[in-house]
Design a protein around this nucleic acid. Structure first.
Lengths: 354, 354
DNA sequence: CCAAACACCGTAAACGTTTACAGAGCCTTG
DNA sequence: CAAGGCTCTGTAAACGTTTACGGTGTTTGG
């Protein structure tokens, strides 16, 4: 299997030096005759420049990594969908890392930045540990974090405002007359888990509702897990009339279990998800969900990173994307569903901001 | 900003040659004392090997590309979800290309293989043109194609059997008593569009049903497009009693439009999708869909590629993944839905099958 | 007609590794 | 004690580019 042609091969065939070949290929000023010879030789040989050698010399790989917990989670997918075209347009390739939310894997990704196989990194960690912060401080390439990071961390940061998001959801349920509003959350040691849990408590307090520990159920951010959590919850507090789920997958699990248990949604139990993924619009019944702006966050993160890659230094920036409540059938019944279904437009009842 | 340490820095500090450093770092036999000195120096300096330089020398990037039409399409996502862990386990990074089904972009990806920034490529083209085949024949790195490719093409190939898949769907609808079975297809110049269209015709013939051109509607593989196509179809042939949609997105569009038109699903019109994506299980009503084994195809493709990357040469292989009909409410009514809803909760959760 | 200016080109070094080769030191053995 | 063999290490070349620098040949101007 003959090795591919290099600029040496071309130089030989065209009877010029490799420097001239390189100049021609990079469009630097060169005599017409030389250009012609080099181009001809390159064409005949089917030359393609070697990206690795180029990167070694130029210290740029034109690759950017995106690291997230789980490729299967539609919220990350929404980010990915926005990140991809932005990077592509700027001439960057996308390297995808799925860390399964394992801290060691995330640290690994940060560490591997030192290998310089990418020019920058967008990361959306579920947990942010001391180790994360240390690695971030020492990172050898620009990093943008999607998700909250302690104040003062010197890193570009794009956040959702899940606090306000939770409040939108709880207010909505309250305004529908629900008073036994349960929360089905993910692990409390994750960033979203913690903040959504806190926000739930606050929102109840502000509405003058009592905080009842029995109404809080911790599971994991997956459908099956969500279902299990809801089953436990129903057994413990049968009179629950609304479920606030920490993401759409949990909410889908909730719908599965409620259906199996013969509870009508939303008549008996109203359900709200978070993230407003495609699944929410497609589910049965369609799911009221708090959009935390995954797509916007992805786009913003990609743009921040590009800015830093292209521009020079600047202070780290923090961008917060506002949430939006999208009302569908799982809280508002068939009326909302019909509208949603027919128009496919977003019935976003964005309320007053917090 | 000081440049990171290289093996030269380490060699200097440890008082040995760069060859020794390299040997230590790669675990080649070396005197204990030297190992100690090198390791100490590397630790103190926080050395991380440079992946680019390594690749240049070793001619291996430990990267693999996956090119597909659209990150947003859940069928590709299912593939991605399987491909990712297989590659990761083997120590490969994943470079993601989204080609928007633009032929020029796909050719570009094939061409860029010559740049040697990846060791191999998994590609799932919507169309396979002459240009594709030429580039494939000349490809400078192993390629696995997901999707059908002309017989005799010398390339590893993983296919769905959409022919049998379509037949399963048509037979199912027929057995439910439907006789005006329409097909809502994507463009006929795409590989899946063409084969699903053909298969539909054949299946009708084998059942002794007439082929009625009015019952075929061409749109595109997206939800909104699918909806438009179905609207036209309904206007033209109001007595249609079943829709076979060429993918789940089209089917979701169909559900939207049927609902808006006041047709009951499945009582008035039964709907079948293809690809059995997560959306099918979550939709309203849940969608009967033909699984074409996206996940299995992704896994098989990744394994084929790894085999070729690690092992030596071998004849190109062809793997065909059998389809499966997953019956849900959109054809079988509420009974199936209840059953499905409860049971899918287990199988669909993203985590456990990985 | 000579010098200076200019346009173009080739030589060589550099990017950070891996690795073939040979040299140095030491041990064994006849 | 000399020779051969071992083990370990250093030198240098190579991977395929880009680019600083200096050299050559031509043009231009005085």
């Amino acid at each position: 299997m003959a090795d591919g042609p290099t600029i040496n091969t071309i130089a030989e065939r065209a009877g010029v030096s490799i420097a001239s070949v390189s100049r021609v290929l990079n469009g630097l000023p060169t005599r017409q005759e030389t250009v012609r010879k080099v181009m001809a030789a390159a064409d005949e040989l089917g030359y393609v420049r070697n990206a690795v050698a180029r990167s070694l010399k130029s210290r740029r790989t034109h690759q950017v990594a995106f690291a997230m917990a789980d490729v299967g989670n539609p919220a990350y997918l929404a980010m990915l969908r926005q990140i991809q075209p932005v990077l592509k347009a700027a001439g960057y390739r996308l390297v995808l890392h799925s860390t399964d939310a394992v801290v060691a894997d995330e640290i690994d990704v940060l560490h591997s930045l030192g290998e310089r196989y990418v020019d920058g990194l967008i990361m959306s960690p579920l947990r942010v540990t001391e180790a994360h912060l240390e690695m971030l401080a020492a990172a050898r390439a620009p990093v943008v974090i999607i998700g909250s990071v302690p104040d003062g961390t010197r890193v570009d940061n794009v956040r959702a405002d899940s606090r306000t998001g939770v409040r939108l959801a709880v207010d909505h349920l309250y305004s529908l007359g629900r008073r036994r509003i349960a929360m089905v959350n993910g692990p409390l040691d994750t960033v979203p888990g913690a903040s959504r849990g806190d926000a739930y408590r606050e929102a109840l307090r502000d509405l003058g509702l009592p905080y009842d520990e029995d109404l809080v159920q911790i599971g994991d951010f997956y459908r099956a897990e969500g279902g299990r959590a809801v089953a436990e919850l129903l057994a413990r507090v049968p009179d629950v009339d609304a479920l606030l789920c920490a993401n759409d997958l949990i909410a889908l699990g909730a719908l599965d279990v409620l259906r199996a248990a013969g509870r009508r949604v939303p008549d008996d139990v109203a359900v709200v998800g978070m993230d407003d993924t495609d699944l929410a619009a497609a589910s049965w019944p369609s799911l009221t969900s708090v959009s935390l702006g995954s797509a916007e966050r992805g786009k913003a993160a990609a743009e921040l990173l590009l800015e830093r890659l292209q521009g020079g230094d600047r202070e780290p920036r923090l961008i917060t994307v506002p949430p939006r409540l999208v009302v569908r059938a799982s809280t508002a019944g068939a009326a909302a569903a019909g509208y949603e279904g027919a128009s496919r437009a977003r019935t976003d009842s964005t309320k007053e901001e917090a």
